[in-house]
Amino acid sequence: MSGALAVEDLRVYYRTDRGAVRAVDGVSFSLARGESLAVVGESGSGKSTLGLTLIRALPANASVVSGRVYIEGEETLSLSLTDFRRRYSWRVISMVFQGAMNSLNPVLKVGDQIAEPLIYNGETPRDEARRRAMEMIELVGLPREFYYRYPHELSGGMRQRIVIAMSLVMNPKILILDEPTSALDVTIQAQIINLVKELIERFSLSVIFITHDLALASDIADRIMVMYGGQIVELGSAERVLGEATKHPYTEKLLASIPRLRGETIPEFIPGRPPDLASPPPGCRFHPRCPYVFDRCVKEEPPLFKVGEGHVAKCWLHGE
């Protein structure tokens, strides 16, 4: 597997009246071709900001303070936006936005919304675009006639399928899915996850799957990247991150907080709240909530230490 995507020392801050919010603060990782990487973390940990940065769709008050993003070998943050949109958006990398199923245009037929990128970004003739949109609708498990429906005529699960169809309409190689099932019932969630798996295989997609749910991540992820307060705190194979291997205390607690259907363990909780990214705590950002905190954690920020094969954790417990 060679690289689909590589991110180096990315920092993305939002300008707010409370000062700079350090939403993504020194993030580096890579994504191999055909690999699925889950990005997991609590609300406000910077997951969506990371995704939006990769597809160059950040809001106006955000700025990329540092970093490089390589897509298939080419650095893309330095490209002009027009250039990026022309060459990468939709056709190389695309994103299913968080909550997108609820922000479809209410007055446009869903089929036309799927066809839109083809017409405007791909200069495809209209009937050709329509044919392609219908194919996509079928591909995500809906009848072709749904082309002519409006968003309000569809259930949440159906709208999520439409949004997925839209993201794939120009055959991208890299797909970012931001919480694609969080508003859905578990029964519908399971259907959508099966669909996503099928599509990943069929199109050999490289995937970044953003979720707050570690259990759900295990459905898709080859590797899992855990974010806390705008930083990566752990990155490793799904087997290692979810299994018995030593891990970051945050990941450990997050795993322990998942209610299980079987077994005797009672779910735990992490006291306190995630850091305020306008003034994050010194040292390790997790230290105010960490059960293992010691002197050094309060004073000094830990680097990512190697804790196993291809497995790193940002915690002094694993350092010198």
Partner: peptide
């Protein structure tokens, strides 16, 4: 039975299997 089967559990083996689902809505 099917509802219980839809609940995700954190198991890396999940990605090699399809979940039994309740068809339709």
């Amino acid at each position: 039975i099917l509802l219980l089967n839809s609940v995700p559990e954190p198991d890396p083996a999940n990605r090699r299997r399809r979940r039994p689902v309740i068809k339709g809505e």
